[in-house]
Design a protein around this nucleic acid. Structure first.
Lengths: 215, 215
DNA sequence: TCGGTAAGCTGACGGCATGACAGGACAAGT
DNA sequence: ACTTGTCCTGTCATGCCGTCAGCTTACCGA
């Protein structure tokens, strides 16, 4: 399924080559965490990896190309976010638990990958389809599950037909992503982490079920 | 109040200088709309403005410095967002109207300034305090008004005390900002603009009042 | 053991962006 | 015309970009 890893000039990468490639990706990841995206230079990444810029260009067309690579692998890992919502109940007490777990898992995932997600978000907002697709891939699992939950509640008459399930789900997911990306920012609004989670869970619960949670 | 505009080397800018400076800012704005932030170069901005890179560096320390300038002026303009929520009612039918107007105004503002807001968002997420402050300045007006509305409803027993007004308000504002920044993205989720607004208004209404709207 | 072959890496180079400076162009007042 | 202070640009040293030829290393079959 996965074609062999290839260098830019078409050779297949062997054991050693793959290791170098991976080291470059790791170092790039670190750099993204410690300095602004705009200031990440190929030469710095190469130096940190103990190699030369030319080597970098053997494996990636440019910085953006390497970033896409990192983002792809993160997206795969992010597929596990589905489990936070798939097959869970959105009625009664269970609904509150579901909402809480979703928020908790979502924030944790974002915190873990914040540096790369920032760049993906930027790329997507700038209209780059490649970044856009990756962002979709991550959010889709959660989004679809939420939309399904809403549709299900609608079919059972618990939620009004006038609600657009996809739009509400998408908005909630966007909210989670945005808040997760600015978690630090909330602190200077005088909002602590511990207060943030219940509030998000409340909003998710309200959005999906249309009702206040019964805890 | 506003100190005179100064060049990097300390001279005060006169009529002609200010015009050049403004032209550079305008051209930078255009470039931000048409190409990725990472690829915006001083030389391109200067060329487009019909001047030389050296001139650019006379008025701004670097690209980021100029971007901050644009963002500041946008933030001032953004203060008008307050009017969307200040002194409006969050009870009965009026609440739905308030929510709709807020969403409408917010999305419009974001659409108008999307390029610069993307960069501000990135800077803030990367932890740059200067960008962070600007983002706050824009969102604060809306955020505070929403938080006040929730607190008001709480004091009148319409909303439970367990709700953290600031956290909910902040989350809602983050949602609006994020959705606004990825408006195009929703289209490939099969969600049209026209369906998005009511959904956002619904969520805002739910978040503030805790109840479904009565239209 | 010994080439042969392909993978892996780098030094070096032209090209371009950066950022600093000094000096020329220009407008306004005398 | 002269002076003064603002405004712009030519030029230069520096450093990163992206590419290539060519060297080293690892693997493999004879």
């Amino acid at each position: 399924m996965t074609g062999q890893v290839r260098t830019v000039d078409g050779r297949v990468a062997g054991r050693r080559g793959q290791a170098t490639r991976q080291k470059l990706l790791d170092c790039l990841s670190e750099m993204l965490s410690s300095s602004p995206y705009r200031d990440v230079k190929v030469i710095d990444v190469a130096r940190r990896a103990g190699t030369s810029p030319a080597t970098f260009y053997q494996y990636f067309p440019d910085v953006e190309g390497a970033v896409l690579e990192i983002a792809e692998s993160m997206a795969k890992e992010g597929a596990s976010l589905t489990e936070l919502v798939a097959g869970r109940s959105w009625t009664g007490k269970a609904a509150w638990q579901t909402a809480e777990d979703l928020v908790e898992g979502f924030l944790a995932f974002w915190r873990k990958n914040d540096a790369i997600l920032r760049v993906v978000d930027l790329g997507a907002a700038e209209g780059d389809k490649r970044f856009y697709k990756i962002r979709m891939k991550i959010l889709n699992s959660v989004n679809n599950s939420l939309a399904d939950a809403i549709k299900d509640l609608q079919s059972r008459g618990r939620v009004g037909k006038e609600v657009n399930a996809a739009a509400v789900a998408g908005s909630l997911v966007a909210m989670l992503a945005s808040v997760a990306g600015h978690q630090k920012g909330f602190q200077s609004w005088g909002v602590k982490q511990s207060e943030l989670k219940p509030s998000l869970a409340l909003l998710v619960h309200l959005g999906v079920t249309g009702k206040k949670p019964t805890k």
